[in-house]
Computed example of a mutant assay.
Amino acid sequence: MSFSLPVYREPDFSAPALCGAPDAVFAAAPCDGVAPEHYHATTIFPEYFKVGGRWLLACESRMDCVAVLEDGEIHTREFRRLRAGDLVAVGRTEDGRDGIYVHADGFAQEDGGSGELFSFRQGRSRETAYSRDYNQIYDLLRHEREHGFVTWVLGPACTFDHDTREAMSKLIDAGYVSGLLAGNALATHDLEAGYLRTALGQDIYTQRSEPNGHYNHIDTLNRVRLHGSIPAFVEAEGIRDGIMCHCVRQRVPFVLVGSVRDDGPLPEVYADVYEGQDAMRAIVSRSTTVICLATTLHAIATGNMTPSYRVLADGTVRPVYFYSVDISEFAVNKLRDRGSLGVKTIVTNVQDFVVNIQRGLGL
């Protein structure tokens, strides 16, 4: 069965509640970084604002931001990016009565007569059967390789196993990875594996701890810093395998954002969280599919800046697919609890997940 994107259906603006709705009200930001009182906070869903009698769709959304009217368009902006005088939408209703309408069901579609909503609001657990999910992901990734932008958000568990690193490398080489978001640990342990065949001092195939292996990730960090960058390290040290190596070779953009506990860190790691957030947002703003593996904090961060839709260059509105995969039910449920209502969760070992995806795609 061939994959096809669900058709987006605009709101019925001829309905009395929307046809008779007033124009949205915009108030000036009182100073830099501060929204006016009674500001409207945006969601992950398509949002329309009535301006001059016309309903305008925000080009992109992000939860917990504000809508700014600028040059006749609606822009979603973080509070920290506001400038004094910016015209910010005000109003706390979402049904049109304040000239603001949040369209949560734009991708509702029939699925074998079940009437299932696209926005995946269903409980998932370790007892859920995921066979159909895997088949959907295979079809989705084949479609996205030609028509979309697939961002992977990886935790360090993806680097501790030989087969997982190899499978992820094949996905990168085959064009199924358009961008990578991660932290210092993912990149460090992956480079350690390529450099010393260990991850956190353990052999990546046998899982045996090597003598003095606890030095290996620090030695790797130190060596990368000596060379000045990850690409320079890969070239100078003759690294031939691994996630970061293949990202460098295939020119896949990656963003590494650090945390308080990071060693080193690697030269490319963003130490300033807002600079890192901006860099992540640049990747997310291009993404049409996001797959998060075994990284609660980075998954929540990415989820909070990912809308449920994307407006393409031709004006078409399409969904953004978002998956969170973790062996912990707590981890995947926490993302949904934080507002990423469109996330589809899979509770499984991420190392098995990556290998299954690679094999399912025939790589």
Rank of each mutant, 00 (worst) to 15 (best):
N216T: 08
D190W: 00
I204F: 10
L312Q: 15
Y205E: 10
G238R: 11
I300K: 14
N304Q: 14
D203Q: 08
P267E: 05
V290N: 01
I230H: 00
P307C: 09
R197T: 04
R310E: 04
P267I: 06
T289F: 07
G201Q: 06
I204Q: 03
R310V: 06
G258T: 06
T302E: 11
R223W: 04
A187F: 10
A279I: 07
T296G: 12
H214C: 12
M244N: 02
T289H: 11
A301V: 01
P307H: 06
G258I: 03
C245H: 05
V257Y: 01
H189C: 00
H217T: 08
M280G: 06
L221R: 05
A187S: 15
I230T: 01
V269I: 15
L256H: 03
G238V: 13
T296L: 14
N216H: 15
M244P: 01
P231R: 07
L186V: 06
L256G: 01
G213W: 15
G238E: 08
D314P: 13
G183P: 02
S308H: 14
A282E: 13
N216E: 11
S229T: 13
H189M: 01
G194L: 03
V269L: 09
A185S: 09
V311L: 12
R310K: 15
P267V: 06
T302R: 02
A271Q: 15
P265W: 03
L256Y: 02
R197Y: 02
A232C: 08
T302N: 05
F233C: 05
A193C: 12
D263N: 13
I204Y: 06
P211G: 04
Y309H: 05
D203V: 00
C247Y: 04
G242K: 01
L226H: 15
R197K: 10
P253V: 08
N222Y: 13
L200E: 09
A236P: 07
N222I: 02
T295I: 05
V284M: 05
A187D: 04
M244R: 05
V255M: 09
A294N: 06
A185P: 00
D203F: 05
R208M: 15
A199Y: 00
E268R: 07
V269T: 15
P211N: 10
E268A: 14
T188K: 07
L312S: 13
